[in-house]
């Protein structure tokens, strides 16, 4: 789904003593089917940026076009249109387990599709399907979400977004607080969903995730776009200037290159890729 930001500016707490510019002149075009990472330090404006995509925020000036929906500063948008948009754009917030509230897992997961006008029976079917995707079986359907473990709650919350079958999926720090195995499981699921045709946006400050999963990376710094392009190209830059860290793999690759070991220039997504590259370099 094409998404276009046109000179978007967003001011927080306008006309109060606490006013500041969260976004300042953002121009962006998302077309084609890439897994896009949006990175930046805490407070850089990256979460503010994505909240414009499902109209949780309206720009102070400029506009965001999401398919045929126009999110501008003053245009009248009907409640129905907003609902349509949010059905298409699913947003998984950081620590989404805090949004659970129904008495059963099944009810909670079917909540979004029901809100978006899917008939009850079908919504429950979609809920079951979504729960299966995140790896929770029937035994969970009638349990209370509040008695589950932290990891299971997270899965229920994610299923609660997936059940609405969004065309665009925005993930705000989806792995925060998860242990490594659960992080990988979660990210692999999103990768899979992406490969099935959903546009995925990953908001994160974990550069290892970016190296591993992203096809395009946008760096937001102080409410402006500081970098937009290929992850590999970004990792060859000085990331310190954006208060970000290099992924482990690239940090090591860079160190080797600096000392004269010529690594082949290609995407390094995993430790195994790096090992292969080192082997090739050693054999030359």
């Amino acid at each position: 789904m094409p998404i276009i930001f046109k000179d978007v500016k967003y001011v927080y707490g306008a006309k109060t003593p606490f006013e500041y510019d969260a976004l300042n002149g953002i121009d962006l075009t998302f077309e084609g089917h890439k897994l896009t990472a949006i990175v930046g330090k805490t407070g850089s404006g990256k979460s503010t940026l994505v909240q414009h995509i499902n109209a949780l925020l309206r720009p102070t000036s400029g506009e965001v076009l999401i398919d045929d929906f126009v999110n501008g500063p003053k245009n009248k948008i009907k409640a129905k249109e907003i609902k349509e948009l949010r059905k298409k754009v699913g947003l998984v917030f950081q620590f989404p387990e805090y949004q659970l509230f129904q008495e059963t897992v099944e009810k909670d997961v079917s909540f979004a599709p029901k809100n978006f006008g899917v008939p009850r029976e079908e919504a429950i079917e979609k809920a079951h399907e979504a729960l299966q995707r995140v790896g929770l079986d029937e035994s969970f359907y009638s349990r209370s979400p509040f008695e589950l473990s932290g990891g299971e709650k997270r899965k229920v919350a994610i299923a609660g977004i997936l059940a609405a079958h969004p065309d665009v999926l925005i993930l705000d720090e989806p792995t925060a607080g998860l242990d490594p195995a659960a992080s990988k499981e979660t990210m692999d699921l999103f990768k899979q969903i992406h490969s099935e045709g959903t546009d995925v946006f990953l908001v994160t400050h974990d550069m290892n995730l970016v190296a591993r999963y992203a096809d395009r990376v946008i760096v937001i710094d102080d409410g402006r776009i500081a970098f937009d392009g290929d992850p590999k190209a970004l990792f060859n830059e000085d990331l310190e200037q954006y208060s970000l860290d290099n992924p482990d793999i690239y940090r090591f690759a860079k160190a080797l290159t600096k000392r004269g070991l010529k690594l082949p220039t290609r995407d390094l997504r995993t430790v195994e890729d790096l090992a292969k590259a080192i082997k090739e370099a050693k054999h030359e």
Binding site: D179, P180, A181, A182, D248, I249, F252, V271, E272, L274, A275, K276, I278, K279, K282
Partner: peptide, 19 residues
């Protein structure tokens, strides 16, 4: 369900590649 640190993972991966 735990990772090894980057260093240890890399050593294992290198050995698997025959380095």
């Amino acid at each position: 369900r735990l990772d090894a640190p980057f260093f240890d993972s890399l050593v294992v991966a290198l050995k698997a590649e025959g380095v």
